[in-house]
Amino acid sequence: MLGLSGYVVLSTRDRVLTPGDTPPEGVDCILVLGCGVYADGSPTPMLYDRLARGVELYGAGWADVLLLSGDNRSADYNELATMDRVAQDLGAPAEAITLDYAGLSTYDSLYRAREIFGVTSLVIVTQDYHLSRALYLAEALGLEAWGVAAEGEDRPGQLYRELREILARDKDFFWAIFQPEATILGEPEPLT
């Protein structure tokens, strides 16, 4: 169990960048992965950190498109409305934002980036503990990917997330091999 998780982490560390690094050339988009919203429509602190980092990279010219991917499974839960609003509040222009309403998992978000939005290269923004798994899946799906960790302190429940991530890396190691179709596929759409 720890061996697979460790392999995923070690095999991706060379593709983790910082905002001060030279941006990779020819990147199609900056993919910001969803991370939960509260009932009042405000982002969780971790989601806010991801959005702030994504908008920062957009403003620094890392890519011309922010692809925001999150969960909108039910009428009363809409990560994307919050993500869109917060990204714009942080300074991203609406015309630079593309929304993926069916990013139900890390795998689904990356699979859909490739199949629905035609992405071939991207920068993934998520917390550091999650970045290795996202990069590993992206590479397995044939995407040229780099990752930048969202800034922010460890949040309550971090130990639980770290332990859960070990299991998630093991699961996604096998998803990377078998590459099932995303939960919700839909018709291809161009990035904005």
Rank of each mutant, 00 (worst) to 15 (best):
A60I: 04
N78L: 10
L67D: 12
L57V: 02
Y58P: 00
L68S: 14
G61T: 11
A63W: 05
A75K: 02
V65K: 08
L80M: 06
E56P: 04
G70S: 05
E56G: 02
S69V: 08
A75D: 09
N78A: 10
E79K: 04
R73I: 12
N72C: 15
V65Y: 08
V65D: 07
T82G: 11
G70C: 09
A75C: 01
L67E: 01
R53V: 08
L80W: 06
D64R: 11
Y77C: 01
L51E: 08
N78V: 11
G61Y: 13
R50G: 07
A75I: 10
A52Y: 03
D76N: 05
W62F: 12
D76W: 12
V55C: 11
D49E: 15
E79Q: 01
A60Q: 15
A63R: 05
E56M: 04
Y77A: 07
V65I: 05
G59D: 06
D71R: 13
L51A: 07
R50K: 03
R53L: 12
L80K: 06
E56S: 13
S69K: 12
L67C: 11
G70D: 04
N72A: 15
A60K: 15
L67G: 04
G54D: 08
G54V: 03
Y77I: 10
E79D: 01
A81K: 15
L51R: 08
L66M: 06
N78I: 07
A60P: 02
G61P: 07
G61W: 14
A63C: 13
S74Q: 12
W62D: 11
N78M: 13
E79M: 06
A60T: 10
E56A: 15
A81N: 14
S74M: 06
D76I: 09
V55H: 03
G54T: 14
D49P: 00
L57N: 06
L51F: 01
D49C: 09
L67T: 03
S69A: 07
D49H: 14
A63H: 10
D64Y: 00
G70H: 07
A75F: 04
G54C: 02
L51H: 06
A52S: 10
A52L: 11
A63M: 15
L57T: 02
N78W: 09
G59S: 14
G59Q: 12
A81Y: 09
Y58A: 03
N78S: 04
G70I: 10
D64F: 01
A81F: 01
A75E: 14
S69R: 14
T82F: 00
L68C: 07
E79Y: 04
G59H: 10
N72F: 00
L80C: 06
V65Q: 05
V55Q: 02
R50A: 05
S69W: 02
N72Y: 09
G54I: 07
G61S: 09
S74G: 13
N72W: 04
N72G: 04
L51S: 13
S74I: 14
S74K: 14
Y58T: 03
A63N: 08
R53G: 00
Y77P: 02
A52I: 00
Y77K: 00
D49Y: 08
G61C: 05
A60L: 15
L66Q: 00
G61R: 02
